[in-house]
Design a protein around this nucleic acid. Structure first.
Lengths: 195, 195
DNA sequence: CTAATGACAGATTTCAATATCTGTCATTCA
DNA sequence: TGAATGACAGATATTGAAATCTGTCATTAG
C-alpha cells in the first residue's frame, strides 16, 4: 500500500518510528519496516546503508526534538542566567522523564544506542553541552557566575546531573525521592557556579 | 578435597569468590561452588538459603573492603574537611577503578547486583553516604562548609559524582578525559559546599 | 537512466528438545 | 544429634536445527 507516493528517507523514518513503537528495539527489523511501507527491503537499503544507520537516524530525529525545545531556553539572552540554568535542567529532566514514560519502546532504542556509544547520541550530548556552555558563558559575562572555562563547567554540570537525564537511570525517575534529589543537586551546582 | 576441615560460611564465601573470579557471574553455579569445596550442593544450602543470598554475601564482603578504607579518611577529624572530601572522593574513584580492572568478574557480579537494586548494594551506598555526611558535617562545624542539611548535601555530592563510582559507567573510567572530568566535578562541588 | 525488486550467501534469531541447576527433604553418617 | 548427602520436582540454561534477517547485486520496470 501507499506505493503510489515516492519512497523518501523521511517516509522510511516515520514508518520505522511506528514499527519501533509497536515492536520495540529487539524486534523491528528492516523487513518489518519495508512491509509496513509496502516495499521490498532492498528499497530501504537504497536510503540507509545499514540497519544501524536507520536506527541511528530515527533516534537522532527523536533526540533533536528535545534539543530544540531546550535551545529556546538556552538562547534566551534576555533572562537571568541562573533562572535559565534551572529551567534548562528541569526541562531536560522533565523531557527525558516524559519520553521514557510515553514512548517506552523508542526510549529503549535510545538507551541501547546510548550504551553502544553511537555517534548520534554523542552529537546530542555535545549539542546539549553547548547549550549549557552558552548559559554559563552568559552568566560569566553578566557577572553572576564564576568559571575559569565555561565549557569545562558546563560539561561538569551536565555530567553531575547525569542521574536525571542518562537513560541508564530511567528506572529511578519515578521514585518519590527523585524530585528532592534533583532540587538538591541543582542547588548545590548553582552555589558552585555563583560568582 | 579439604573435606577434613569443617564447612563454614566463611569457607563457602572464599570458594564462591574464587569460582566467581574464574567463571564470572553468568556461570558460577551453587553446584560449582560445592564441587570446588568437595561437598554436595545441599551442604551449601545449609549456610545460605538461596543462591541470591550467597551472591549477595560475597558482594557485601567485597564491598566492605572499600568502605573500610574510605572510613579512615572520613573519620579523621584532625584534617581539613575540604582536603578530606577531595581525598575521599578520589579514593572512591580509584578504588572502584582498580576493582573494575583487577577483578573484572567480581566487578561484573557487583554490577549485576547494583542493577537489581539488591539490599547489600543499598547498604553499601548508605554507608558511603554516611561517611560523606560526616565529612560535610565536620566542615559545617568548622565553618568551612555551608549546608542546610549535611545529609542532603552529602547525598547530592554522592549522586553528582555517580559517573566516577557507579558501575554503570565503568566503561568510561579508562578514557583519557576521565581524570580531567573528575577534577572539574570535584572543584565545582567543593565551590558549592564552601561557606 | 533511476527506482525498485527479489534471489541469494552468510549472520543472527527462534524454538523445542535436552541437560543442568535450584531448592527441598527424607535418609545416612559420624 | 547435628552435619552432610543425594534423589527429586520444577525452573533455567544450553544446544543445534530450522527460520528469519541483513546486506548485496544482477535484473526488471517505468
Amino acid at each position: 500500500m501507499a506505493a503510489t507516493e515516492t519512497l523518501t528517507a523521511e517516509r522510511i523514518l516515520e514508518a520505522t518510528e511506528e514499527v519501533l513503537r509497536r515492536h520495540g528495539p529487539a524486534k523491528a527489523t528492516v523487513v518489518d519496516v519495508a512491509r509496513a511501507l509496502g516495499v521490498s527491503h532492498g528499497s530501504v537499503y537504497r536510503h540507509f546503508r545499514t540497519k544501524a544507520a536507520l536506527r541511528e537516524a530515527v533516534t537522532k530525529r527523536w533526540l533533536d526534538r528535545t534539543s530544540e525545545a531546550l535551545d529556546g531556553i538556552a538562547g534566551d539572552g534576555s533572562r537571568d542566567p541562573e533562572a535559565r540554568l534551572r529551567d534548562w535542567l528541569a526541562g531536560l529532566f522533565t523531557a527525558k522523564r516524559r519520553k521514557a514514560g510515553d514512548d517506552p519502546e523508542l526510549f529503549a532504542t535510545y538507551s541501547v544506542l546510548a550504551g553502544e556509544q553511537v555517534g548520534a547520541v554523542a552529537e546530542h550530548i555535545d549539542e546539549l553541552t553547548e547549550q549549557l556552555t552558552r548559559i554559563v558563558a552568559d552568566g560569566v559575562a553578566a557577572g553572576v557566575f564564576h568559571s575559569d572555562d565555561p565549557a569545562v563547567s558546563a560539561r561538569a554540570v551536565f555530567q553531575a546531573t547525569g542521574r536525571f537525564h542518562d537513560p541508564a537511570y530511567a528506572g529511578e525517575w519515578d521514585r518519590p525521592e527523585a524530585d528532592a534529589d534533583f532540587a538538591a543537586a541543582v542547588d548545590l551546582l548553582l552555589r558552585g557556579l555563583r560568582a
